[in-house]
Amino acid sequence: MAQEKTTSNPPANVEVDTSYENDASYGDELSSYTASLTSSALDYRHENGRRYHKFRDGSYLLPNDESESNRLDMLHELCLLVLQQKLHLAPIQNPQRVIDLGTGTGLWAIDFADKYPDAEVIGCDLSPTQPTLVPPNVKFLVDDIEAEWAYDTDPFDFIHARYLAGSVKDVGKLIKQSYRSVKPGGWVEFQDWDLYPISQDGSIDGTGFHRYYDKVIGAFADVGYEVRPGPKLEKWFKDAGFVNIHVEEFPIPYGVWPKDPYLKKIGAWFQAQAEDNGFEGAALAVLTRYKNWTKEEVIALSNEARADGRKRDVHPIFYFYVAYGQRPEN
């Protein structure tokens, strides 16, 4: 098959909305093929006022408590907004066996199971924090997706992963594993971030917002986590052997400063998920465990980022990527 790439063309410049007069408006099945789910999987780690997974303790540095679940659910809605209410962009047809890697709260897997009632849908995550009332064709497994897979003896029609940035150390290896585990002719889709913000007008330079991401994302990178997978997805898909590769790139503003109503709405959702304990949640474990920061120092840094992110003259932009490819029929 011929290799093809299509990349969306976001506006060269995201125009700032200057019409604001008041900043106030800114503002029950759990199973695992590699380990039995016993009480130890639910014996969570509690640290600095947040709760963390226990299975493979320490391999994931973000919380798994209710506040984090709420934030992940908001990110799910944000992704639906960005993708025009589409759960995926890959041109799949009549999928029978599907897996969602790093499923989090399981919303994507649940929505997919509703849309494709004939498909068997598996959501895999380190934490058993998904709902118990789910469609009959979805189940959740507790497992480490970076370990050797033991649930792929029957290949998948579609493999999906979303925002693993800062969660996985070798995304390229994971994509190669996905290639081996998808049927010939099947599709794999990864949706992920470049976690470093930019500003087209230089307005984030020297701000607390910029300092936060420099310290926190830099710490994740120092520990070995991949923090900029989005721009690298196309190469990893090619290296794994996929064909018919497509890549889409989406600018995601932080805040309601864009003039365009659609980008303004996206920016509002993105800001809301970060302000809802998102700054602290991302920073606490990596900075206190690996960089000798105190909880109080992390909270102060987070407050600086939150305050600068609310300023009308600060215009951060992140980039979100969707890449999918097909395993050759032969």
Rank of each mutant, 00 (worst) to 15 (best):
G224W: 05
V256S: 02
E329D: 11
A285K: 03
L174I: 13
R51T: 13
G208D: 08
G58V: 14
V16C: 00
K139P: 08
K265Q: 10
F318T: 07
Y44F: 14
D144M: 14
S39H: 07
P117A: 10
V82D: 06
R327P: 07
V121Y: 00
P253Y: 00
L30I: 09
K5P: 02
G230M: 15
A240M: 00
D152C: 13
E29M: 08
D57S: 15
G102I: 03
E66Y: 12
Y116K: 04
P328G: 13
K295G: 10
I175M: 09
G186D: 01
I245E: 00
V256R: 02
H53F: 09
N277G: 12
R50Q: 11
Q191S: 06
G224N: 10
V247N: 12
D17P: 00
Q130Y: 09
D28T: 08
F112L: 04
S199H: 09
G267L: 03
D118C: 08
P63Y: 05
K232F: 13
L126W: 01
A35H: 10
S19W: 11
F112T: 04
L174S: 12
E249N: 07
K115P: 09
V98G: 01
Y33C: 10
P258Q: 01
K176R: 15
N137P: 05
A2C: 03
G172E: 04
D144G: 11
A24K: 06
A283D: 08
L284S: 02
E68S: 07
H210D: 15
D192V: 05
F220Y: 15
M1C: 03
E68H: 13
D222S: 15
E249P: 06
K235S: 15
A2D: 09
P316C: 05
L75F: 13
P184V: 11
A283T: 08
G241W: 01
L72A: 12
Q271N: 14
N13A: 09
E21T: 05
I266H: 03
N94C: 07
G255C: 01
H53V: 07
L233M: 13
A274S: 10
G309T: 00
F318C: 12
L141F: 08
G255L: 00
L61H: 02
Y212C: 06
R312A: 14
I245H: 00
F320Y: 14
V322D: 08
D144I: 06
A323L: 00
Y290T: 12
W257S: 02
N64M: 09
Y213Q: 12
G172P: 06
S59V: 14
G281A: 11
V171D: 10
G186K: 03
L62M: 11
L30M: 07
Y60R: 05
L301C: 08
Y254C: 01
G278D: 03
P231R: 09
D23Q: 14
G58Q: 09
V314A: 12
D143T: 00
F112W: 03
D308P: 10
Q326R: 13
H210S: 15
V322S: 06
V98E: 01
Q271Y: 11
G202F: 08
G281L: 04
A109T: 06
T294I: 07
L126D: 08
P11Y: 06
A24Y: 11
H46G: 05
A113K: 05
I299F: 04
W187E: 00
D43H: 05
P231L: 12
T38F: 05
Q85D: 15
Q3F: 03
D100T: 00
M74V: 10
P117N: 13
I204D: 04
